[in-house]
Design a protein around this nucleic acid. Structure first.
Lengths: 169, 169
DNA sequence: TTGTGTGCAAAAGCTTTGCATGTTG
DNA sequence: CAACATGCAAAGCTTTTGCACACAA
């Protein structure tokens, strides 16, 4: 995505966020918009701490509390999706403008691929009907080994991955 | 399942566990067998702390460290499955003798239903092929609201559940 | 001006680790 | 008897909370 499109996307999600904040009676603080913007300038998946460090490195003055608070707001607005890829560490990703997808996680290198499959939709509606459940969301993760560049075996036999740590400058 | 079948099942899993311990050069300690047995006498899903408390209540002298250690061993043996149902709290369930299934979690009451759908198998093989990935496992959770007895709304709008705490006597 | 949001630090909750002791092979 | 497993408690890590101050409405 080029710079122009990225700026337009960010403008768009900020407007959506504004709407939700107004509608729910929350205040529009600069920190909230700054966090939203950073998320939409970042790529792929990240955890709360990485986002916090990233904000700090950009010389924003934010606290972890605000990062977590804002992430919650954004998840409730559907602007951000929250995942658990098998570790006790929540992973997030921007979700506006991206079509629904699921994840394939490499147990060796922790890489995350995305894929779409319409059958998951069918399963959701069918199971909701059969089990008398109103299904509103799902999470599907496939775990395995990529045949690619990743040759190192970090946790043989275990089902875990190593998060890439970002360091504070 | 009646008592006789339960005892037979437990005998069977203990033998399987023994085989894995031998094969991997680990020791056969009474604690490991006690934990395995308690898991297979329990029903459904539980977390490590609940299992620990349960063992304590049965007057076993075990530590949390051993509970976590043994759970890891059992997961690696495929005698126990580990899940994350959207919270930072691992849930476990016995898996030997039960057919593969996925989960439907009520966001209001935290209840967990199980279901099977062959399509998930198709998705796994197809995605593995398409994305050049050797898929060895998956986790599919559907989230929603049960129309049943559960009327309380614990975390409206959030995607979380409340674990049932077991107390020490 | 009023009350919500923030930063900071401490606390909480789940899991792992270190160390002395116990027990398996 | 030597090495590994255990119990216990402390530490580690992610996330939440309390409190005083700042700032949006």
């Amino acid at each position: 995505m080029n710079k122009k499109n990225e700026d337009e996307l960010i403008k768009e999600v900020k407007e959506i966020f504004s709407g939700h904040l107004e509608q729910q009676g929350f205040r529009k603080t600069p920190e909230r918009y700054a966090i939203l913007e950073e998320i939409y300038r970042r790529s792929d998946h990240f955890d709360a701490e990485a986002l916090y460090i990233h904000m700090k490195n950009q010389n924003y003055r934010v606290s972890r509390a605000t990062v977590y608070n804002t992430l919650d707001l954004l998840v409730n607005c559907d602007l951000v999706k929250k995942h658990q890829f098998g570790k006790n560490l929540a992973q997030y990703e921007k979700s506006y403008g991206y079509k629904q997808h699921d994840h394939l996680i490499c147990l060796d290198c922790g890489d995350v691929l995305e894929f779409c499959d319409p059958r998951i939709h069918q399963i959701k509606s069918m199971m909701g009907e059969v089990l008398k459940f109103k299904v509103i969301g799902h999470s599907l993760n496939l775990y395995g080994h990529c045949h690619g560049a990743c040759s190192r075996t970090q946790n043989p036999g275990s089902g875990e991955q190593e998060p890439k740590k970002e360091t504070m400058s």
